[in-house]
Write a protein that binds this DNA or RNA. Structure first.
Lengths: 347, 347
DNA sequence: TTGTAAGCGTTATCAA
DNA sequence: TTGATAACGCTTACAA
């Protein structure tokens, strides 16, 4: 490969001058600049970023540690990170912890993940990244999961920490659930059941609170019998819907806290010959790809994944730029996607 | 950050010796090794990979250029690449061309993609990657899409080139279609229709050939009226199925060349009150995530995406190791996933 | 077995 | 406006 030294020799100038025209630094006459540029062009010179990085102690690359690329949320978040990074001239060094395949259902085991993460973190730091984004695959508390004496910006997304000083980008679960519930209320529903995720997660609690607040704000009665706790999986949506339908106070609508369980709910209705949405309205959460393929297509809250990526990257850039006012915790809005699983309440 | 120099000073040895214990090179007495290791531990020393890379002219990182991370095939391929890379101690520098969002439906425009790719390629080369994997998002001919005088291993996956000297990892489309067809034949079907993708793609032709050969091998009659050309999208599956069902020689089974069109076929049946699979069997191709959520769940050929990733990375490693016998074109097998959209042919 | 020192391709200081 | 040169943190002859 041709080096600055080669350009300098051929153009009859010093390496310093070549470096200056390359970076627009110093001052160099139009004439020499032109002749240097010409040589650069001819030799098809490409600067060596490694050497540059060593010297300036900046790599213009951001490390991205993702718990699992194959998780439904990861690709779109990475896409968002990428969009912003590209505009800023930054590259991405990707580390995939592969927690699903590696740990199977244990991927929820914080301790193992912690080990994986700190390992990944150390290695990526050695590559001298200028900043780091951690992308979760599960609503997990990642407090102190990675630690370093070298202070580079670290931003968490799709996961949260319990320390106020950490930067995190997430979506507003409370508001999302609130709006989903409101949507059903406005459609005339009064008996709105909830199929929640496991209550050990912040997610579940926040979403439940959103639901609760919508019920209260509309002066409806809160009926605990309508609240069921699932485990985020299809089967639990199915089973709990069956329970709800068998009970005395049967709901006219169900808010499922993710699309998997919503799909399960649809399945349960089908088994019982109930029509969705005529007999029962169902609203999901996440807007997974498959939600357009259920029958009927699912009405659901879309997560602002792409935007979470761009905002995470933006935070990193802001911190890097020394912007003290960078907000620590960003919460982005979900969007209701109206498809065909929810309708007006039956008279 | 602490440097080798610091370790050397504190341990009262030369930097050369420290470097030797770090890399297991040279020969150093157990005693000095121990004392050096101790200092390294105490100081929590982490080597600077950038400096090392500059010196040894190897970065132990592989560039991954992906046409679009959000494409359904990308995440799993990346996961495979990652698995292999991790075992070899390599990192991944990810470039996402974002062709879908950037170009919209024009993402099929080879010329624009070519520009994007060569740009991405140049930048990633400047970062001194040791090798490159190009991940397509669309069955595209990428011949000479990226060129370089610096010869590093380049492996293409989920796309193909027309040059025999290029390395490419793909799945065996011919065999996949052959086996899918055979599956239907074994279930007693004799009138098997095909909903193909656009015939401007190699994919479509190979898959069609696989179908054709299965028909021939089983001495069935080939009926051109049963071959319909769609455009890979849901709607075309729907429309063409309607045509097939309206025709005189009605098929008992449909092989759709992707899951989108297969889902469309199911939709068309539903509209007409036909039962799947009792009245019509449908087999898809790709095994998209949504295929478990259609009603009935789709029987389909699963693409060996993860394995394509690992094999692509393996090729890179092999070439890097100077293994002359590395096979240029790998074709991996698809797997039939039996779900509920195909059954025995009606008597 | 250990140390000295040159060099990887840049940038940046300082002098000319 | 330009050039000589040290330095970034590491590896690696080669010498001791």
């Amino acid at each position: 490969m041709t080096r600055i030294k080669d350009i300098a020799r051929i153009a009859n100038v010093s390496t310093a001058t070549v470096s200056n025209v390359l970076n627009g630094t110093g001052s160099v006459s139009d004439k020499t600049r032109a002749s240097i540029l010409k040589v650069i062009e001819e030799m098809n010179y490409q600067p060596n970023h490694i050497a540059k990085s060593l010297k300036i102690k900046k790599t213009k690359t951001i490390g991205v540690i993702v718990e699992d690329v194959t998780s439904f949320n990861s690709a779109e978040i990475i896409d968002g990170i990428n969009e912003y990074a590209e505009n800023e001239g930054f590259s991405l060094l990707l580390t995939n912890m592969r927690v699903f395949k590696r740990l199977g259902q244990e991927y929820k085991d914080d301790e193992v993940v912690r080990q994986l993460a700190s390992q990944a973190f150390r290695e990526i730091l050695n590559k001298q990244v200028d900043g780091l984004i951690y992308v979760g695959a599960h609503p997990r508390d990642v407090t102190r999961m990675i630690e370093s004496h070298k202070r580079i910006p670290i931003v968490y997304t799709y996961c949260h920490t319990s320390r106020d000083e950490d930067y995190a980008v997430n979506y507003d679960e409370h508001l999302g659930a609130y709006e989903a519930t409101n949507y059903l209320i406005e459609a005339g529903h009064r008996q709105i059941a909830v199929i929640s995720g496991l209550f050990n997660s912040n997610s579940s609690r926040e979403r439940f609170n959103g639901y609760y607040q919508a019920i209260m704000d509309n002066r409806l009665v809160f009926n605990p019998a309508l609240i069921k706790t699932g485990d985020w999986e299809f089967e639990s949506g199915c089973r709990l819907t069956a329970e709800l339908l068998a009970a005395d106070s049967r709901p006219t609508a169900i808010l499922a806290m993710n699309d998997n369980m919503a799909a399960g709910a649809i399945g349960a209705c089908k088994e019982r010959g109930l029509r969705v949405p005529e007999d029962l309205s169902i609203v999901g959460f996440d807007d997974r790809e498959f939600s357009s393929y259920t029958a009927p297509q699912l009405t659901t809250m879309r997560l602002p994944l792409h935007e979470m990526g761009t905002e995470a990257m933006k935070s990193v850039m802001d911190i890097l730029a020394g912007n003290e006012s960078t907000v620590k915790s960003k919460k982005l809005k979900c969007t209701l996607i109206e498809r065909h699983s929810a309708a007006q309440a039956p008279k």
